[in-house]
């Protein structure tokens, strides 16, 4: 897919919870380029020598009717703080779309379980939407420490069944996503997961025992985002270093030997 470097404009800005910002961006020059669920963008943090490199952020949602790209951002450092301080009307330079997205199953009516933890739920929203549009049945299994950690639940519920876990039992079943009872009740054709690495590894291990294909989305530190600098590597199942930005960020868990 052709990549672009575009100055996108902040059209809407929300704070879904403390420490997170949702930016909705449009392209003042015309339409947004085609983007796949699971791909990411690299944002330029202008004006500070402390935030020299671009920041990779996953695509949360693409509103094709309104021409808006949604980015759900966890504010953890100076780069994401800069993003959270953008105002409606400000522009930010984005290189997009980058990497490979989640796969779209062939045929129709496939049952796909999307498992997210923390801000890792972000790319699953658009993936769920795309799956549903293609005639599949996405369900979501979303986990957090507490009820307040789980964002955009109404939007997930509009797309498919939503199952939740929290460590403090404030919402859904108590515990981790991999303990949720749905995993023993239903069979799925595909599982996709995004979130903390230990969670994804646990999901991949469960998928392996359930004999189900599993796709995981990684977020290694990166510089270029296009496969040139070779900084963001992950070991594949054969021990070779592969670029998360170009070969991923979405990998079949078997490719990584997880």
């Amino acid at each position: 897919m052709k990549k672009y470097a575009l100055d996108l404009c902040v059209v809407e800005k929300e704070f879904p919870r403390d420490g997170y910002v949702l930016l909705k961006l449009n392209n003042p020059q015309g339409a947004l380029p085609e983007m796949l669920a699971g791909q990411f963008v690299e944002l330029l943090i202008a004006g500070s020598s402390e935030t020299f490199l671009r920041r990779p952020i996953s695509i949360n949602y693409v509103d094709k009717e309104k021409g808006l790209l949604w980015l759900l951002i966890h504010v953890v450092g100076n780069g994401t703080k800069y993003m959270s301080e953008l105002n409606v009307g400000d522009t930010i330079n984005c290189v997009l779309p980058l990497g490979n997205g989640f796969s779209m199953p062939e045929g129709e009516g496939k049952k796909v379980l999307l498992v997210g933890g923390g801000v890792g739920t972000a790319p699953l929203l658009y993936y769920g939407k795309c799956l549903k549009e293609a005639g599949h049945t996405p369900s979501f299994l979303l986990g957090g420490r507490s009820a307040g950690d789980l964002m955009q639940l109404d939007l997930f519920e509009a797309i498919g069944n939503v199952y939740t876990t929290t460590e403090d039992a404030t919402l859904g079943e108590k515990g981790f996503v991999t303990n949720h009872s749905i995993l023993n009740k239903e069979q799925f054709d595909l599982i996709a997961t995004c979130g903390p690495k230990p969670m994804m590894k646990a999901v991949a291990a469960w998928a392996r025992t359930a004999n189900c294909e599993c796709e995981v989305s990684l977020e290694n530190m990166m510089a270029c985002g296009v496969g040139a600098c070779l900084c963001c590597v992950e070991k594949d199942g054969e021990g070779h270093n592969v670029c998360v930005c170009k070969e991923g960020p979405v990998f079949n868990s078997k490719k990584l030997n997880w």
């Binding site: 020598s49 402390e50 935030t51 020299f52 490199l53 290694n220 530190m221 990166m222 510089a223 600098c229 070779l230 900084c231 963001c232 590597v233 992950e234 070991k235 021990g239 070779h240 270093n241």
Partner: peptide
């Protein structure tokens, strides 16, 4: 194969 991850660290005005 090159070196293991992590292979990169951002620094002020560089990497």
């Amino acid at each position: 194969e090159g070196n293991d991850y992590p292979r990169m660290a951002e620094t002020p005005a560089g990497m």
